[in-house]
């Protein structure tokens, strides 16, 4: 497992332990691949955001780099017309289910979506798709954070830290398809649930769905 191999990403030779997932190898070597749902410690990636597509020579279609293990002599391109098209569509679909009012968003300038848009030359505007315009009531915890589902991109990072790091199990996914949402058991408010207000999920949120309020509002970044 600890065998070191060499592969080529965007004409650069990099070394990595065999079996490591391509996404993490690229990121460690300062080659940015857009990603939202990826969690390094997670055994089986959910591969649900569909943003980390790359082209691997020899494979017929682009693959998600979070699920692709690196092999000796692998040749990877992070940008091809096919990859860009897939990423653009996935990104636009995410935006169609996201409240796009960056100027009023507490996460403005440190939002992962903005970072992806900048890196890939994508617009934070909807052209092809209509906004779903879902409106959920804003949840405000007593003095610590707010939860705005209208800005949630369903990456699952908050659910993962809640389950695996905080070991609380207060939040999870519910419903299916366009109605999918992060919620508590029985859809009750967080303060009535088993939530301990540890704040780990707020730190994990890559977009403006979970935000600290008050004094801690500057604690969250990246």
């Amino acid at each position: 497992m600890s065998k070191t191999i060499t592969l080529t990403i965007d004409d650069r030779k990099v070394t990595a332990p065999e079996g490591e997932k391509l996404l993490w190898v690229a990121l460690e070597n300062d080659i940015y691949i857009p990603n939202l749902c990826a969690i390094k410690e997670e055994g089986r990636p959910s591969a649900s955001c569909r943003l980390c597509f790359v082209h691997v020579e020899g494979l017929p279609a682009p693959v998600t780099s979070c699920t692709q293990a690196v092999r000796e002599g692998m040749v990877v391109k992070t940008r091809t017309p096919q990859v860009d098209r897939l990423v653009r569509t996935a990104f636009e679909l995410l935006l169609s289910d996201h409240r796009l009012k960056c100027s009023t968003c507490p996460q403005n300038r440190s939002c992962e979506l903005q970072k992806i848009a900048r890196a890939r030359g994508l617009k934070l505007k909807l052209k092809r798709f209509k906004s779903l315009g879902k409106e959920y009531p804003l949840y405000e915890s007593p003095g610590l954070f707010t939860f705005d589902r209208s800005r949630c991109v369903l990456c699952g990072r908050c659910v993962w830290v809640d389950h695996e790091v905080a070991k609380v199990g207060a939040i999870g996914f519910a419903r299916r398809g366009l109605k999918r949402m992060v919620t508590t058991f029985g859809n009750i408010d967080l303060d009535a649930s088993s939530c301990t207000e540890c704040g780990l999920c707020v730190k994990a949120c890559p977009v403006g769905a979970l935000n600290f309020t008050g004094e801690q509002s500057s604690e969250k970044d990246g």
């Binding site: 389950h163 996914f173 519910a174 299916r176």
Partner: peptide, 26 residues
């Protein structure tokens, strides 16, 4: 019922919200 889901979650040692998520998925 909610109590049934909580009981099942306890027996399986998983968060109740995961059982809820599954029950609302299907």
């Amino acid at each position: 019922p909610g109590v049934a889901m909580e009981k099942i979650a306890t027996a399986m040692d998983i968060p109740a919200v995961d059982v809820f998520g599954l029950a609302t998925f299907y």
